[in-house]
Design a protein around this nucleic acid. Sequence first.
DNA 1: TATTGTTATACTCTATAACTATA
DNA 2: TATAGTTATAGAGTATAACAATA
Lengths: 162, 162
Amino acid sequence: MTKQIKKKAPPAATPPETGEPALDQRTLQALIGYNCRRAYINIMPLFEKRMAKYELRPVDFSVLSLLKANPHINQKRLSVAVKVSPPNLAILLDKLQQRGLLLRERSPLDRRSQTLALTPAGLSMCGKAEKTAAELELDATAALTDDERAQLIRLLQKIYLN
Amino acid sequence: MTKQIKKKAPPAATPPETGEPALDQRTLQALIGYNCRRAYINIMPLFEKRMAKYELRPVDFSVLSLLKANPHINQKRLSVAVKVSPPNLAILLDKLQQRGLLLRERSPLDRRSQTLALTPAGLSMCGKAEKTAAELELDATAALTDDERAQLIRLLQKIYLN
DNA sequence: TATTGTTATACTCTATAACTATA
DNA sequence: TATAGTTATAGAGTATAACAATA
């Protein structure tokens, strides 16, 4: 059995005194969930800024990217993959369809389900957006080396993959 | 200059075939922000389950923990630390105060600001909640070794610290 | 005039119930 | 009867404007 992590954290680092001393956040900073959230909300503003030209929120981007890699899946499968409920996904897809980025077609085999596919415009925008996203991430995580990024992704996926 | 990461990801791993083949998510899974979010929402259900007995949401927990480590700060400083806007923080603090977990006192030096402090009940609950949170994280990240957890936290903080 | 904190309110996100059309 | 998708609606979370009290 590995020993419980119980050792006192080092004294709270005192960053450049800008008037007020920083708060002691050591207990929260020892929690992985807290750190995931903080890192995420640190990356988000740059995402919004760089992706603004495509008018894509993170969910929209995920949907397009998933449809690009998995053409002709139905809404049910997409729903579980992006963790958006069917009612909310319907509305989201309505908007992307109205923008001419994707098409819904009734499946001939099972006429209840709809098969989803990007239009040429959607494919083109998604490709550019994926490039922008990859670049923006490098900038938002400039403090990391390439090895550290790969390592970080490996560790995060250990948490949520299976 | 470190070379751009551009190499093709390995072929999408095909997990135990449970009817439908899994979607190809390699492009999204190469993004750090996406992975942070996925790891976070993977930990959250266990957080909610184990913290339910304290009736504390993540924000509430952060507020209590911050006040435990930093007694007598005012709402302004707490507001920036937890990234909750002053109007929303006021309501959040109202509820915690009504539950007898904290006290607000007008500062004698600057009577505009209020100084915040946990009550004995708040201190006690926060201590227990912190213990529960630390334990739950070990369970939610059971796939990681202690070294990997420390490494992960170090990398995440490189992203959002400073 | 600027700042702390509050009230009121609006907007976005997410969740749920009920419906349709197919199977 | 069960499933894919939709509509309508409610709730939680977040953001903004305007105000009172104090500096």
